[in-house]
Amino acid sequence: MRHLLSTKDLTKSDAILILDTAAQMAATQEREVRKLPTLRGKTVVNLFFEDSTRTRISFEAAAKRLSADVINFSAKGSSVSKGESLKDTALTLQAMGADAVVVRHWASGAAYQLAHGGWLHGSVLNAGDGTHQHPTQSLLDAFTIRKHLVTSPLGADLNGLTVAIVGDVLHSRVARSNVHLLHTLGAKVVLVAPATLVPVGIDPWPCDVVHTLDEAIESYDIDALMMLRVQRERMTGGGSAFFPSPAEYTRIYGLDGDRLRRLPDHAIVMHPGPMNRGLEISAEAADSPRSVIVEQVANGVAVRMAALYLLLAGEEAAQ
């Protein structure tokens, strides 16, 4: 594995290798000394064109626990006001000798361009590109699901499990990454969203689509329910809004105590964070014993350690 750009590129054995490696990494995190010497002398750059403190500190913690040197590079700019070009940034990082670049970008495809533009030699790890992909998020989701719902997780896939993903699928890199990864791992995926937030052209995706959360709860034996964050700006903008009001969204798509109780007893509740309490998820659901939301964060560090390890140390082992 040279880069980690999209979960669509991962085979089932790739995915299981990452999850198993993450399990090993997680085990090391319970020791007294959590730092491993594995990536000593390697330089990992966190290149963030879009603010995301959570994702950045997760990658930073992962790289540091593997003893890599970490450089945080926050690049200004947006689709409206262009800052330094992607190309010039990449050339700068190349000149600094980055072994891996963890990139978060507002533009779909930026990670792919960085990996294939011929500007830098290091590995590229996609930490979220526009509305395209966020592979480590879905890997940590899969890791969390496997840990909770599969009896002997090591080496196992997610065969037989049903995962429902609720919310703004159209603009969600988390949904896109999860549909492919969970399908590859053998799970059944159900997307739940108003038709305005389902992309045109979704037919080939390996998943079902339903338009209300109640229908999803009634029609499927849901093992894991993943609530997506709803951006406030999707509801405003007058004629450009995707749904009529926050109240209506909460009524049809929000996870409250009542819907929580109608899920199977073993079902877990997930959220990639940060949550809008009271909008897509009620406090009761978020804080219930079925919620694994805080654990997702911890698993994120283990999964990112695994990805960095496999990209950087794995490469050396292969040589």
Binding site: D129, G130, T131, V200, G201
Partner: peptide, 24 residues
Amino acid sequence: LRLTEGAQMHEGEVSAELGLAGWP
């Protein structure tokens, strides 16, 4: 113009996968 605000590529199966805003 209204149907293509921010549009990046043809709206269809490829745009859905790539996460680029569709031009229907």
